[in-house]
Structures are given as C-alpha cells and as structure tokens.
Design a protein around this nucleic acid. Structure first.
Length: 936
RNA sequence: GCGAGGGUAGCCAAGUCUGGUCAAAGGCGCAGGGCUUAGGACCCUGUCGGUUAGUCCGUUCGGCGGUUCGAAUCCGCCCCCUCGCACCA
C-alpha cells in the first residue's frame, strides 16, 4: 500500500476546516513552538526531526482537547545570508551550483544578487511548501521573518532592548575577540581556515625597567616572578621602541602591531636590542637586578617578544641557559654562573627543588634543539605545578596554592602599576587567509547574564519548568551557573540596530530570545497591516505587562483601540510558552537565553513552562555533513515515502537526548504494520462473532493497557516508546488475536472495531494522513478528534500482566502444538506456585555457605509449600514489596484456554491441577516456576 | 582544562533512579522450518557455552575493588568514547 496518496487529500481538508488556526477562546490553550529556522537553505532531515516532534506533540495536545497554538516564523539576521549573496556576486561556482540544486533559476539568482531579501523569500516559500507537505499543523497566519524584513518585528526587538537597558540588564564594556585585520570583524570558529577552538589567552606583562625603558616580560605564570634569574630577548628579532599608554616600551615589532588593537600604541623607532645584552634591568616586584641575555627561542610573534627566565620551573629557560653555559658565553654578557643560579619558588609533589632542571635531565634535554621534548616537558610541569603546587620563597605569597595565587598576584601587580594584560591567541588564520590576532572591542554592549539576582530567578523558574528529558535539567542548571556576560551586538550583518546606539546591530542569538511572544501578536499585525511606528514601546509595555491606560496608550500611539485590546487579549490568552522543543545544541545558548530574557521582561505568570530537548539526526548511522554529502533534503524523502512514513520513521527511531537515525530500511517495517492496520480498517466488517469470550475480554483489557502506556509516553514526549506500544505492540496483539480465533470471521466484531479505532487515534499524531483515511474506512463521517482514555476497571486481572501475559500465552500455545504432535496418553495442566518459587531457587543458587545450608535444610524438610515461602519472606523483608508475577487465577484462565485448545486437537484425557495442592510429586518437581503442562 | 552525557550479547538498543519475575525486552543480522514456480513479503523456531520433552548447570552487562543472603542496577577508584565552551547560527 502506498500511503502517500492520502497526503494532499487530507491536507486540503484540514486547511478547509481551518483545523490549525488557533484563536482566543474559552478553552484551555497549549502553546508549542520549535526554533525558527535560518533560511539560507531548504529544510533537511535534521530540521525535520525537531519539527516533527513538535508537530506530534501539538497534534496530541489538540486531540486531548487543548486549543493548541503552533505558529512558525523564520530567521534571517546575521552574516550567513549576506555571505551567500556575496559569494554569488563574486561568481562562486559552488555556491551557484548549490542554488541550482535548491531549484533556483538563473533569474532567481540574479534577484538574490540584487537583494538578500529575495533569497530569504525564495527559501521561505520552499520551507512553507515542505512543511505543509509534511503535514505540519501550523497556524500560518502568524508567520514572520526576522528582523528588518518584518519592520514590526524589528520594532519589537527595539522595545526588548530598550526595556532590558532600562532594567540594567544591558551594560557596556570591553571584550577581547579574535580579530581579522583585513575583514575588520571578529573571526568565529566557523570562519577560520586554521585555529578552530583557539581562544584569547591573557598574558601578564611584568614591567621590568631599564633606564626609563620598560621591558614588558610576557608570561602565563606571574607567580614565578620571584624565581626570575634573567631576561631573554631574541637577537634576531626586529624590536621597536614604542609609546604605550604614555610609557616607553621595548617590544617586538609584531607585538607593537598587535597591541595597537589592545592599547594606545605609537611606534617611535627601531630598537637594536644587542646593546642591552649584559645590562641589568630591574625586577619591578622585588627591585632585584636582572641580567639581560640573548636567546633565539624567544618568538617575536608570541606576545611581546620579551621573556623572563625562570630556569627552576621552565624547561625552555633552563635549556637556554645550558646552551649559553656550554658555549661559555655567559661572561660575554657580563654575567657569572652565580648570577643565574635557578631559584626555586614552587613546591611540588614528586619533584625536588628544581623541577625543570630535573625534568630536562630525565628527558635528556641538553639544549634548545629538541622542541618537541621541551614542549612536552613544559606542558607536563605547568599542569603539575598549577594543580598541585604551592608557592614558596615569594614574600607575602609564600604558602598559597599556585592555582589560587595566580589571579591574586596579577591583580596586585596591575594595581601597583607593575603589570599589564596582553591578549594573545594561538595561530588563527581567517577564511580570507589573513593571520588573526586579538582585539579589545571597546564600548561593546553586553547582556549582563552574570547578574546573580537574575540567575536566581532563572533557577527558580527552571525548577518549576517541565524539562524533557529530565537529564537535560542538569545541563541547564550548569549553563546558568557558568554563563558570563554576553556580547549582544555586532557591527556587521543583517539585524535590528541597537535603538540608542545605531552603529551596533543586535546580534542574532540575542534577537531571538522572546520572539514567541510576537507570534501571539503576529496574526493581528499581519491581518490588520499594523504600521511599525504605531507599535511604540508603550504599546508593547501595555500588551505584555498591562502597564498604562488602554485609551491613553492607544491615543498616544495612534493605534486603534480595538486592535490594542485584541493584541493584549491574544498575548494574555496564549502566553506563556508551554513547550519549546529543540535540538540539544541549543541548550547552552538559545534555550537558556530564552529563559533569561523572559524572566527579565515578562511578569512571572508569563515565564516559560516547558522545554524539550532532542538529539541530532544521523543518516544510516553516520553523522550528517556536507563533506559526506549525506544531507538529505526533507522534500525528497516526502516525495519518496509520503509524509506519514517519513514522520514515524524519524520520530519513532529515537527519543530523549539520544541521536535519531534515518534508516531507509526501517520504513519497510513501519509500512508492514500499517498495511496490517489498513487492511483491518476496511475488512473489520468481516468479523462476525458477537459473543464476548475470555479472549475478547482479554483483548479489551490489553487495549486499555496500551492506551495507558502510550498516553504516558506521549505526555513526556517519549515518542519511540509510544510508537512501540501503539503500533508494534498493538498490531502484534491483533495478529495474535486473529491467530487465536483462527480467522477474521471468528473474531469479535466489536473488539476488532474498537481496537482498530483506538489504535488509529493513538497513531494520529505520528501519521495523521493515513490515520484519517483509516478512520473514515472504519465508518466515521467526521475527522479524528479526541484522545482515547483508558478505563482501569476494564483492566482485568489478566491484563495487569501486560506484555508478559501475551508472551507466555503464546509460548504455551507453541508448547501445546508440540504436545499435540507427541500424542501423549494423558495431559495434566497445572497451576504453579507464583514468583516466590523463583526467589526460592535464587537462594538455592547462592554461593554463600550459610544460606545454602539453610535453604538445603528447607528443601530436605520437604516443605515446598507456603511454609517455605513465608520463611524466606520473613528472612528478606524487602521481598514483600514485590508484586506477584502471575496470580493463580490468571493462570487458571489461560490454562482453561489451553484445555479447550487441546480438546479440539486431541482426544487425550486432560485435567487441570494446582501444583501447590497436588499430591503428584512429579508435577510438583517439574513445575516450580512456570505454570504449564505435564504429560504422561 | 571546565561542564554534560555515555560504555549492556555479532550490530542497534531497553533495563540502572526504586538491587531479587535479568542469560537480560525489542529490532537488525544470521541459521533452520512453514508458505511460495522462484525471489520478496509474511509466520514459526533458534541465536553466550553445555544440557532437558518441559529443564538445569556454568560464564556474562568497560576494568578493579567494596556493600549485600543477592549487583547490569548501590558505593569507591581507574580506563575509554561523544558533545558544548560564546559573539557563531
């Protein structure tokens, strides 16, 4: 059966019936969203997963009777769209090819080049068409695009930032970023040719002085300053004298260039450092005289090109000194061996006084030639000292832990004016092939996420929120703790300017934190064509917080009073967000910001109620990636398999935070099950039986069980479990039932119809199209509505056992068939002891001698029955909490079935006995933990 | 480095919170059988080793220890894997 033929048929009917349009009403609402996609391409399977999960939940809630709002907008701010347009304009062949791949014509592309808007709208069209074809139950009247493409939305962002600033949540400050001097913009990880993962590191510059000059020694270990023996400069490096914040610094030329982006730097002249060798500079902390020596290991491209030497703790320094000593060059520089004797300033476990010296010896390092070993030694020692070392011989800092002292020392020294900070980054090369360095951005705008009060409220709200799966909660808590101030503005890309400082644009993560509130307004704004200028801050204040007088606000803004009232009504009714469903990658950023901003901007009652997080999508077990070429467009899957099979294959494949997997192969498995169901939906009339027998009652009880477990799984978005029980388990039951009754004709009509109908309803959120079709096949005139409720009174004793029951019954039927073949003289069906026998056997297996002895005694006493059981029970009280596996009455029902069956198939004598009461020892011994069959 | 999540039979994956119905669900693969002109689909059976008609015994849940009458599950240490660490959507 090819189910895709039903897709458009039902989609049209839904549309006609306005099934997904949510309006203010008296009913209970449920507001669900998933993050709006960035529209620089069409949707692929990865998008599909989050989208389908959201839709499944939306449909489920709708069936439950909620007035579900499920809107959808699109995201277009920031750099990528501009990047695409730029590449198109540059004639980038692969980009043009990609666009053709997405179905863009030459004419389309010409349009994109002229205006990025055209590109955005092109993809939005694709998105909407694909989502509709996928059967998404979205209220499209509320769509919009960020930010400047929808000026009213841009106005909304302005209100957001004005309000945040007013409340003190936006502050200004400086911030180091990795910077491309050619592009004149920050170079994020994804913009890099080399150096992914490199981030700015703060070197401490200790200002050694020499005759009015400053030699700013760059170090990551300022706590070792008391162990400095000499200063290193590279005789082959180009140094300059520069005016840095009013001081005369001697630094490498490269350093001077870089520092221009961090301090006020003016290069005065070249400086020949050779004249310094052998001279003494002054240690700014303890005023010691420190000889200046040459060494080529000092890189001019790392920090200042001025390095202090701590031979006791730095392998490089010791190796450099060894080189000088080997070549007997020390005296050339007016320096004695005793002047540079290593000074130990860190006590560390596992090493003696001079760890670097020891380590060099151990690793056979004799000079600077073996940089690999030196690097290894350096990193090893640095880690060891940082984590376990204690400072010594260092004046007031003696006795403090290295990892604690570092920060303190730095602050102290800066305060005293003897130190500065210089930001440096490892090798980073921009996409434009330019080497990057660190720039301090001045006057950057920040969201003050570090604010403890703010965090407190966020934590409080988190604790009352629904989080699916529960494991994700840890992640949120941790993110909240760890979050620092976040730069929320950029100088380039698309977006809304910061209203009070228009040279900055609100950065794209920061303009997407409360847009769900805009959905509640979007319908009216779109339909009434509300002008952006009428949406003043006062209007938004009124809508979102109720502040101000309706009439005055309307008058001042020139917004129609009725519209203003309706906007407020929509927001009041639909807000807050009840469930936001998203990929796990957004936990550390978007989803957490979403919470922060809501807490800052809205009244408590409007704070988010729930978040659900899902994993990524793999394709055939592999990660999706451009390079593997395994990114599957959603559209092609829909065309191939139809919406329903795609939906259930994705949503049913995984749950929780685990990654989903798109496996073509498993579509088959689903299709088979649906074939069975579909067949029944048309053939149910062939069932003729009307008498309710045990097996029919059992099926009804079993159905209640399925409703219960499916509903519970659905509620917490455990969709794989839900599919497992509503589809696989249920169809297995049906097949089993039909096998037991012999054929469809012998099946109970009522049971078949009820069972099929309920299963169809349970599966509707996953496969809405084919379910509607089956529902109508079952003779229903109206479309599906309502969610089945389970009736616990119908959960007969048997069904309490759930799946075990079925399995065991089935096994017994197989056994029975075997028995029939063996042609026994007599068959005894017996009821066994219940679970306690299992426990009893476990005890027997126990290796513990004492227990073994005890139980053996019990055994030999012949007390098989209740006495034994109660003895064990009293011994292990815990066991009392356990539920019986299968009660005798349940067994009896099954055995009666078995008896009937056997009587049909054979003419052997059959009796049912209770193993607990029987005098038949053989049966007793044979029986212990399974009810069943015994023959003679 | 900091933080989060994991490691279960050939593979995927439940079970872990709340220890005993766990030799451990389910699926895939594989083997045998049924059905079929054949293939596919479907239905049975088996799938840690050894044994029984039904059973029982032995050895398993990353590694090593511990708690317990009893550990895949609780505790400690160790090893390994995946992901995130920001101005980027």
């Amino acid at each position: 059966m090819d189910f895709k033929v039903f897709d458009s048929k039902w989609q049209k009917k839904w549309k006609k019936a306005k099934m997904f349009e949510a309006n203010v009403s008296k009913g209970k609402k449920f507001f669900i969203t998933f993050p709006y996609p960035y529209v620089n391409g069409p949707p692929h399977v990865g998008h599909g997963y989050s989208a389908f999960r959201t839709d499944v939940y939306a449909r489920y809630k709708r069936q439950q009777g909620f007035n579900v709002l499920f809107p959808q907008g699109f995201h277009a701010t920031g750099e990528p769209i501009i990047g695409v347009v730029k590449r198109l304009n540059n004639g980038d062949e692969s980009q043009i090819q990609a666009m053709h791949g997405y179905g863009a014509t030459e004419k389309d592309i010409e349009g994109f080049k002229k205006d990025p808007k055209n590109l955005v709208h092109f993809f939005i069209k694709k998105w909407i068409a694909t989502l509709e074809a996928a059967g998404m139950s979205i209220d499209w009247r509320r769509k919009f695009v960020t930010t400047t493409l929808t000026p009213t939305y841009s106005r909304f962002i302005e209100w957001q930032y004005n309000t945040l600033k007013e409340k003190g949540f936006v502050t200004q400050g400086t911030h180091p970023v990795v910077w491309c001097p050619k592009d004149l913009s920050p170079t994020g990880d994804h913009d890099r040719l080399i150096g992914e993962g490199e981030s700015p590191v703060d070197y401490v510059l200790l200002k050694f002085t020499y005759l009015g000059y400053i030699l700013p020694a760059a170090t990551l270990r300022p706590e070792t300053i008391y162990g400095v023996t000499n200063m290193w400069l590279n005789p082959d490096t180009h140094y300059v004298e520069a005016d840095v914040d009013g001081e005369r610094w001697i630094i490498s030329n490269e350093a001077a260039q870089k520092l221009k982006d961090q301090m006020k730097v003016e290069i005065i002249s070249d400086f020949d450092v050779k004249e310094l060798f052998g001279k003494r500079c002054i240690d700014p902390v303890s005023n010691r005289e420190i000889p200046i020596l040459p060494s080529k290991f000092v890189g001019g491209d790392t920090a200042t090109g001025v390095v202090m030497s701590v031979p006791a703790h730095a392998p490089y320094d010791w190796a450099a000194l060894m080189e000088l000593m080997d070549k007997d060059e020390l005296q050339l520089y007016n320096t004695q061996r005793t002047d540079i004797e290593p000074v130990s300033v860190i006590e560390v476990e596992g090493f003696g006084e001079l760890p670097a010296v020891e380590l060099c010896e151990q690793m056979g390092i004799k000079d600077l030639s073996d940089t690999k070993k030196l690097d290894e030694a350096t990193s090893l020692l640095y880690k060891k000292e940082f984590h376990t070392g204690t400072v010594k011989n260092s004046g007031q800092y003696t006795g403090t832990k290295v990892n604690e002292s570092k920060e303190k020392l730095t602050l102290d020294f800066i305060e005293k004016g003897v130190a500065n900070v210089m930001w440096e980054v490892g090798e980073v090369v921009c996409r434009c092939n330019t080497r990057c360095h660190v720039k301090i951005l001045e006057n950057q705008w920040f969201l003050k996420f570090s604010d403890e009060e703010w965090k407190k409220d966020v934590r409080t709200n988190l604790s009352r929120m629904t989080i699916y799966p529960e494991e994700a909660r840890n992640n949120f808590e941790n993110t909240i703790d760890w979050l620092r101030d976040k730069a929320c503005a950029r100088k380039s890309g698309l977006g809304t300017p910061i209203p009070w400082d228009r040279e900055w644009i609100v950065e794209t993560l920061s303009d997407s934190t409360i847009y769900m509130a805009y959905y509640t307004l979007a319908r009216i704004i779109n339909e009434k064509k509300v002008k952006p200028e009428k949406l003043t801050d006062e209007v938004f204040d009124f809508i979102f917080t109720g502040k101000g007088d309706t009439k005055k606000v309307a008058k001042a803004s020139k917004l129609k009073l009725s519209i203003l009232r309706d906007l407020r009504k929509e927001f009041e009714y639909f807000y807050p967000v009840d469930m936001r469903s998203s990929g796990k990658d957004l936990v550390q950023n978007h989803l957490t910001f979403f919470m922060f901003h809501h807490i800052a901007l809205f009244p408590r009652a409007k704070w988010p109620n729930g978040i659900s997080v899902n994993g990524y999508v793999n394709v055939e077990g592999e990660k999706m990636s451009k390079s593997k070429g395994n990114i599957i467009p959603l559209k092609s899957l829909l065309e191939q398999h139809g919406a329903d099979m795609v939906r259930i294959n994705m949503v049913g494949s995984s749950q929780g935070i685990d990654d989903a997997d798109w496996r073509e192969e498993s579509v088959k498995a689903y299709r088979n099950r649906y074939d069975t169901l579909f067949q029944l939906s048309t053939d149910w009339k062939k069932a003729k039986k009307t008498k309710m027998e045990n097996i029919d009652l059992f099926m009804q009880g079993k159905l209640q069980k399925i409703i219960e477990s499916t509903t519970k799984s659905m509620e917490s978005m455990m969709f794989r479990d839900a599919v497992q029980s509503a589809l696989f388990e249920a169809t297995s039951d049906l097949k089993w039932y039909l096998r037991r009754t012999g054929n469809l004709k012998n099946a109970n009509k009522k049971v078949i119809k009820e069972y099929t109908g309920v299963i169809v309803k349970l599966l509707t959120p996953f496969t809405p199209h084919v379910c509607e079709e089956m529902w109508s096949n079952l003779g229903n005139k109206k479309m599906i509505s309502g969610w089945p409720k389970w009736d616990s009174t119908r959960l007969s004793n048997e069904a309490e056992l759930g799946e075990d029951m079925l399995k065991k019954t089935l096994n017994d039927i197989e056994d029975l068939q075997r028995i029939v073949k063996m042609k026994p003289k007599k068959i005894i069906l017996f009821i066994a002891e219940d679970w306690k026998f299992r426990v009893y056997q476990k005890v027997l297996r126990n290796k513990d001698q004492n227990m073994n002895t005890i139980t053996k005694e019990i055994m030999s006493s012949g007390a098989y029955g209740k006495a034994t059981v109660s003895f064990i029970q009293s011994l292990y009280k815990k066991l009392n909490e356990l539920k019986p596996v299968m009660t005798k009455s349940m067994q009896l029902i099954l055995l009666k079935e078995a008896k009937e069956f056997l009587q049909r198939e054979t003419n052997t004598k059959i009796e049912i006995i209770d193993a607990d009461k029987t005098t038949n020892q053989k049966a007793k011994v044979a029986s212990p933990n399974k009810f069943g069959i015994f023959m003679e």
